[in-house]
Simulated scan of single mutants.
Amino acid sequence: MGRKKKRYVEDHIFRIYPDYPLLVLDKIAWAKAGANDPLHFHYYLEIGYCYEGQGTIISEGEEAAFCQGSISLVAPNLLHATRNENGMYNMWGYLFVDLEDFVKLFSFIDERMHMKICRQLFYGVRILDERKYEQLTFLLKQIFRTAGEKKGTYKMQVMSLLCSFLFMLYDVLEHRVEEEAVSLPLLPAIDYIYDHYMEQIKVGQLADMCHFSESHFRKVFQKMKGLGPVDYINCIRVREACRMLQNTMEPIRIVGEKCGYLSISSFERNFKKRMGVLPAKWREERRLYRKKERGEYEIKQILVEERTGDGEENHF
């Protein structure tokens, strides 16, 4: 009997931090994406810009075609994969945005607007044509350029540009004629999961909110999100657990309880399934990583100060 193949690959949450809740990857190129590459998902909103190439982005149950100049939007926790046409060369720029943390950094974004933005950006795969949305394209390219140059207050500039981009994107999606309504029946359930992940949630309860039978709800949810409702709930719980493990000294047991797990064994099992290691090990790895990162930063600062000092002596 052969080994069961993994159906998806997860993107680790620790690559994005609350004070700068986005990851910028520009000019990512590949020559071929095989038809059998596994579907994967990210905990974040994925925004892409196709510099070269064409193909499709697939998620379970649907496909969205892209070409040079396409802007792609992929919802968090959605199984998907990029398929290049005939194995041709592709080049992309990507933003991965932790929208929850991003919104918290801007006090003028109230809770109502926060919910509206999330409702538009947290569902499905969308493709926009740069020729129709020149301002969006300009902002996106400016984000890549500013993040790549890393000059001065570049992080604040990137955050401001992204804020403008997301508000403009929201307006575009609100007024598109071809607005996708396929995920709308799931909105009550999705909103409830995000607000009550720390509580015990029954699938039948979510089905009732959407006026579906439980069996039909499971089928629709799997088709629309690429994950079953229980797996989706666990994704949200593990994401929040990672945030707490990284930013607090709460005991592992307490973190698990606050994220909705009734026992530490259940928490550890689900956490390891998604992150590859137990919570305690993950926390320790994060600590060592950040310690190393701080050390590298301090070394760079010393080198900069030494260069500045040498320059001043030579000048005078």
Rank of each mutant, 00 (worst) to 15 (best):
M91K: 15
V158S: 06
H80I: 07
V97N: 07
I190L: 15
V103T: 10
I190F: 01
E111S: 14
G124W: 06
D129W: 08
E130L: 03
F122Y: 12
I117G: 07
Q135Y: 13
E63S: 14
Y133L: 09
M198I: 06
V172A: 00
V182H: 12
E134N: 02
C163V: 11
K116P: 00
K132W: 06
E85F: 09
R131T: 12
E199Y: 12
M198R: 04
Y133M: 01
A189F: 06
R119N: 11
M168T: 09
K202V: 04
Q157C: 08
T146A: 05
L128W: 02
Q142K: 04
G152W: 00
L162G: 05
Y194W: 11
L95W: 01
Q200W: 05
E62D: 15
Y194Q: 06
Q157E: 13
D171S: 15
V74M: 13
L166E: 00
W92C: 08
P76I: 07
P76C: 13
V103A: 11
Q135G: 10
H196F: 03
G69L: 03
E149G: 01
F165N: 01
L99S: 14
A147C: 02
M156P: 01
L78V: 04
V177M: 10
E149N: 01
F106Q: 03
R145G: 00
F144S: 02
V177W: 05
G148E: 01
G152S: 03
R126Q: 09
H114F: 14
L187E: 12
L78Q: 05
V74T: 15
L140F: 03
E100Y: 10
V158C: 14
H196C: 08
M115T: 10
Y89W: 08
G93Y: 06
M113I: 02
P185N: 09
E180A: 11
E111D: 14
Q142M: 09
M156A: 11
R83I: 15
K104D: 10
I71Y: 01
L99F: 14
L95D: 00
F102Y: 05
E63L: 13
R112S: 14
N90G: 05
I71K: 04
E199W: 02
A65C: 06
